[in-house]
Design a protein around this nucleic acid. Structure first.
Length: 438
DNA sequence: CGCATTTGACCAGCGC
DNA sequence: GCGCTGGTCAAATGCG
């Protein structure tokens, strides 16, 4: 890469020489000063502009090359011939042009920064509105149909906000994918897909049909937390506590109290090996609408459950083989997510205990990760319809939880970053090349 | 007083 | 059949 070569071979001038060079190319001091003032290398400069979708890298390099050639020609001449004077004039014009571009770049950057601030404000406002709307919805004795309609509207609102705020190609790609979701499927508050035929591939399927298997498919979330329970946006009522075998820490049983007779249960227990790790195991599907903050965890676990349930069918030989699930790890996840069918119920464990990356801007980091995660999950699952709705839901909902629970934010960002980073080498998906911006 | 939590009892599934 | 374990129930208790 030419730009990288330039960045790696920069020669810092020792005097007030008008010309410096990198890798054989000469650069006017004013340009160097511009980079120095912005505390960035030329390549960083171009990356920033690329990030703002203002691609000036090619024209800038062309300009620098012209100036370099112009100066070289000037210095080699030895005397001020007519050609030299012409070159100097050209050089001066190019420098002026470069100045103009720098000013324009600066103006664009300020504009983008302003837009970003406006976007963040708008995003917060939308989130507040959605939470307010959901509370009204809970108080209102609306029918399930009305609730579903509201959910669709919330999702649409969320997607529009995402598109406005990020204004990027990836978001548009997500929206394109999302448009393929049948409208009737959107906003369905269920936790898992209705596409349950694949559940029959599991051992232990009984005469009660697939309904019970949905209930018994479990998703464990491991995360470091001092609290007795990781906040996931849902309301839970404790209904039991037991000492489990092989663990000195008691296991607590909770049921969801957000909806009437919601069948969702969860177990909370500290890890025997490391008591700072809290393990929450979810089971069942919600029969009611979820607030944005709760949708995040529900959708994440739903995605994981979908991955779990789709595992046997996506084997290389195409055969339904339950044994594939035996302690198998999701490719590229490096134990971040682990499947297991050796337990009484098929369970997938999402390990969010890794240290969060020391990034100063985790929120924006996740905004970039969301569509990639969804796309990678979708491509790995090879699913359609309802499950796509579920992933789109994940994308839109996760942001809400990110802003509501810093601990969950940290854990989830670390996990997702790790998953995406690790899976890059294994995945030929369209998200390649974008994760490097995280 | 109403609601959430605690805790012992009970039940079902499984292995021996 | 018996014991073990996981999961749930429901009365007792605590708290605001």
């Amino acid at each position: 890469m030419e730009e990288e070569d330039i960045a790696n071979n920069v020669e810092v001038p020792h005097s007030s020489s008008q010309v410096m060079s990198f890798n054989g190319k000469r650069l006017i001091m004013d340009e160097v000063d511009f980079f120095a003032q912005k505390k960035m290398s030329p390549v960083h400069h171009d990356q920033r502009m690329e990030h703002h979708h203002v691609d000036t890298s090619t024209s800038t390099l062309d300009l620098l090359t012209k100036i370099s050639l112009c100066n070289k020609s000037t210095m080699d001449d030895g005397e001020y011939s007519e050609a030299t004077i012409r070159n100097k004039n050209e050089c001066a014009a190019l420098v002026a042009e470069l100045h103009q571009m720098n000013v324009e770049n600066q103006r664009l950057k300020e504009l983008v920064d302003k837009l970003r601030i406006d976007c963040n404000t708008l995003e917060e406002h939308v989130l507040q509105l959605k939470q307010k709307q959901y509370k009204q919805e809970i108080n209102d004795e609306a029918t399930e149909d009305k609730k579903r309609k509201n959910m669709v509207e919330l999702m649409e609102c969320d997607k529009k906000t995402q598109k406005i705020c990020n204004n990027g190609v990836i978001q548009e790609k997500m929206e394109k994918d999302d448009n393929e979701i049948p409208q009737a499927m959107k906003g369905f508050p269920g936790w898992l897909s209705n596409n349950v035929s694949r559940l029959n591939s599991f051992k232990g399927v009984d005469d009660q049909g697939t309904e019970s298997m949905i209930k018994k498919a479990r998703v464990s979330v491991r995360a470091r937390s001092e609290a007795t329970m990781i906040s996931d946006g849902c309301q839970w009522r404790k209904y039991g506590q037991k000492m489990a075998k092989g663990n000195p820490c008691p296991r607590a049983y909770y049921r969801c109290t957000m909806g009437t007779a919601c069948p969702v249960r969860k177990q909370v227990q500290r890890c025997a090996e490391d008591k700072t790790i809290l393990v929450q195991t979810y089971e069942g599907q919600h029969n009611h609408a979820l607030p944005p903050t709760a949708k995040a965890m529900a959708s994440t676990t739903s995605a994981a459950a979908s991955l779990l349930l789709s595992g046997p069918l996506t084997s290389a030989d195409g055969l339904i083989n339950p044994t594939i699930l035996e302690s198998a790890s999701i490719p590229g996840s490096h134990n971040m997510a682990t499947l297991s069918a050796s337990a009484p119920f098929p369970t997938i464990t999402l390990d969010l205990t890794e240290e969060a990356t020391k990034n100063s801007s985790q929120q924006s980091q996740f905004n970039l990760i969301q569509p990639i995660l969804a796309q990678k999950f979708m491509s790995s699952l090879n699913v359609s319809g309802m499950e796509n709705a579920s992933f789109a839901d994940t994308v839109s909902a996760a942001t809400a939880a990110m802003t509501s629970d810093p601990k969950f934010t940290t854990a989830l960002v670390a996990a997702i970053t790790s998953i995406i980073g690790n899976s890059n080498s294994n995945n030929n998906g369209t998200a390649n090349g974008t994760s490097g911006d995280q």
